[in-house]
Amino acid sequence: MGKALVVYESMWGNTEKVARAIADGLGDSMAVEVCEVGAATQSPSSDLALIVVGGPTHAFSLSRPSTREDARRRGADRGGESGVREWLDRLPGGPHAQRLATFDTRVTAMRHLPGSAARSAARAARHHGYRRTDDSESFYVADVAGPLVDGELERATAWGRRIAAAVPV
C-alpha cells in the first residue's frame, strides 16, 4: 500500500474540510497523513507515493502575507504567517519520485476567471521537480467565508479516489 501526504492551508476552515475529504478518498487505497501547512515537513519522506497540496485562491493565485492579513481583517480565524506558497518555495529540488496533485478552494463567482491557487501550486511543484498525477482541481465556496457549495465534499472524496488510482505503487 502506498503512502500519501495531504498538505493544506485554510483561512476559514473550508479548505481543511476539502483536504480531509480528499484524504478520505485516498484512504480507500493508501495510508494518508493530513497536515496543516504550518506543521508540514519541508522534506517529504521518500517513501511517499503521493503529495496533495491545496489552499484558498487569493487574488487569482496562492495566498501571500498581504492576502492572509486581509483575510484575518475580514474575520478569518485560521492560517499562519506562512502558507502553501512559502512551503512550496522551501521544498528541495528534484527530480522526485513522488507524484503531486494540487487543489484549491475558490468563490463560485470566480469560477470562470483566470488564475487559481491550484494552478500556481502546480507550477511551483514542477519547478521543484515533482510530476503531476492529474489536472489541478478547484472546489467551490458560496462566499469568501463559505460555506462550501453542496456536493463539493463528495466531489473531493471522489477526486481523491481518482488521483490515488493514477499513482503507481
Rank of each mutant, 00 (worst) to 15 (best):
E86A: 05
T67W: 05
E69F: 12
T41D: 08
T57A: 09
A49R: 13
D89G: 05
G79C: 03
E81W: 11
D77L: 15
G80N: 11
G75Y: 12
G93Q: 09
W87G: 00
S61L: 12
R68E: 02
L48A: 04
G94E: 01
L88I: 10
S45R: 14
E81Q: 14
R85P: 01
R85G: 02
S82H: 15
R64V: 14
S66R: 13
V53F: 03
E86V: 01
G94W: 00
G54F: 06
D47R: 07
R72I: 06
E86Y: 04
S66L: 12
T67H: 04
A71R: 08
E81T: 13
E69C: 06
W87Q: 00
V84P: 01
P65V: 08
S82G: 09
S43E: 11
G55T: 10
L88H: 01
R73L: 14
G80M: 08
F60D: 14
R78Y: 01
G83Q: 03
T41P: 11
R64I: 15
L88T: 04
L62S: 09
G80C: 08
D47W: 10
A49E: 12
S43A: 11
L88Q: 02
D89Y: 00
Q42T: 15
Q42H: 15
P56C: 08
V53I: 10
F60E: 13
S61M: 12
G55Y: 05
V52D: 02
L50S: 08
S45H: 14
R78K: 15
T57P: 09
G80Y: 10
V53N: 03
P65A: 04
Q42E: 14
G83N: 02
D77P: 09
D47L: 03
S82V: 09
D47C: 04
V84A: 00
G55Q: 06
P65N: 04
E69N: 12
P92M: 03
V53E: 07
T41I: 05
R74W: 12
L62G: 07
Q42M: 13
P44V: 07
S45Y: 11
R85H: 07
L62A: 08
L91R: 00
L50Q: 03
L48V: 06
V52G: 01
T67C: 06
R73V: 12
S82T: 14
W87P: 00
